[in-house]
Write a protein that binds this DNA or RNA. Structure first.
Lengths: 274, 274
DNA sequence: GCTTGACCCTCCCCTTACTGGAGGGCATAG
DNA sequence: CTATGCCCTCCAGTAAGGGGAGGGTCAAGC
């Protein structure tokens, strides 16, 4: 028979933990001195302790461990096969947690890399009107009608459906030919790696296009000034404007904080035929 | 101003939670009626509530959230960029948990599939002496000298070093020409998918070999009876015995429980030249 | 036989992020 | 006058132990 300290050193469980397991009736010392209250453990209990440690390292809750052990107190011949359903159920639970942490880690990665990209975008920013060709890209889009301020709902919908496949900056396609306040026709889009349309969310590839582009720095309610610049540029050169035009939100309200609108960075892209 | 119930419905946080956040000074109602103690929230506090929800969904501890918010109580223009180091540190933490759950899920998978394999092995068992050819396989081996009962230490050593690359049943190579009790020369081996030798653990490929094999059912201390059968078979046919011979532990003491030795299943494989 | 130091005991509080409930105040509707 | 619906505070509980106070026990050395 071993005192609690000896048993602790032999099993690697702390004295506190052993007392706790005694209280929870998980691992009861074979003998307790009625006078002193000292706990004495039998060598045969090493095996039980080992099993508990193994189950704990697999994150089994103590309650389940107690149930498993109690189901087979008689001989100690308990076999893993006897608890295969237990193991399966627990595995499902663990996989759920696993995928939860995958999501969390992926979100953190996205936030961080998005911020870093925004930083470099900010540094390399060129606030002149530019002619450029945008690459084709796969997006999930949700078309809506109403006010631009309500676009958040659109992004949220797509985010919920394609969360972990998002791979770039949010953008918006604007189908109106002129600025509308209350009944705008637009489509919130998020670039994704892969996926298929479901319900109101359409997945498709946006084509490569020649664009006149301009970086707009500042809050959205001053976007019109930048639009004017682009339009003047286009008219001066006599290009034909194609629809829909795009806004790419290089830096806008974040996933956590809305940030300072003065630092928002938006790229206006007007597709044209030269 | 919103009562706690209204604010709760608007933010999705429960009333209890809001009171708790008040106590923790995370989200203090803008006004508290001194007479009734009623809490009243300002619409501007939606933004803070949203940020808290976002940070919580990323598993940030409340304490960190409080620190983040307190660092920038002034304007609400806090930007994700301002806390990028916070995010990085937290990401590291989350990835640690992620890999922990990956380990746990992998272990559970291994235990379950091992058990299922053992079951089919048990059903398709043929308890006659057989001539067979074993496939080559990559193993990590730890050679030791002493008593067979101490082999557990060898498997533990390999398990610690190659844990997640193990891909099959434990086996043992026996280098002695005859049975030895106390000073046996053997090597504990675990099949692995990939890996390289390190320290005392040697990784190498076991060759394909022609063997005389026999399934032994029962505890290890009755293995000698099965050995006798095999040896008789080999002598009768005049085959030449090659060294080392192998024992494959199809079903033995599990990772959690030692199980019932009467159900242990071991395959004896004696390599021969015919 | 006594002292000393190591060991052991119980009991209580602490952790996280909340949830549940008891007991009570206040106002409005029927 | 009662019922319902808000709201309040305070207490207790969760999982799996850890930390520490205050006090009893064991074995060895003198």
């Amino acid at each position: 028979m071993y005192s609690i300290g000896e048993f602790s050193r032999a099993t690697g469980l702390t004295v506190k933990t052993l007392r706790f397991y005694h209280e929870k009736r998980l691992l009861e010392p074979r003998h307790v001195d009625p006078d002193s209250g000292y706990r004495y453990y039998h060598p045969a209990q090493f095996e039980t302790a080992r099993a508990i440690v193994a189950l704990r390292s697999l994150e089994f809750p103590l309650e389940d461990i107690a149930a498993i052990l109690a189901e087979h107190t008689d001989g100690g011949n308990l076999d893993e096969g006897d608890l295969i359903e237990f193991l399966r159920a627990h595995k499902a639970e663990m996989e759920q947690r696993l995928s939860h942490y995958q999501d969390v880690a992926a979100s953190l990665n996205q936030i961080i890399s998005r911020e870093l990209e925004a930083r470099t975008a900010m540094q390399n920013a060129n606030y002149d009107v530019q002619e450029k060709t945008v690459d084709r890209q796969l997006v999930a889009g949700y078309r809506m009608r109403g006010r631009y301020q309500d676009c958040g709902q659109g992004y949220a919908k797509i985010g919920r459906a394609f969360g972990r496949h998002i791979c770039g900056k949010a953008l918006m396609l604007i189908y109106d030919q002129e600025y509308k306040e209350d009944d705008a026709d637009f489509e919130t889009c998020l670039p994704i790696r892969k996926g298929e349309s479901k319900g109101e969310i359409a997945v498709r590839e946006l084509p490569s296009q020649d664009c006149i582009a301009l970086l707009h720095k500042g809050p959205y309610d001053t976007l019109n000034r930048s639009y004017n610049k682009v339009m003047t540029y286009i008219k001066d050169r006599g290009y034909e404007i194609l629809s829909p035009c795009r806004e790419v939100y290089l830096k806008g309200p974040g996933m956590i904080f809305k940030g300072n609108p003065k630092k928002y960075l938006t790229e206006i892209q007007i597709p044209v035929r030269k």
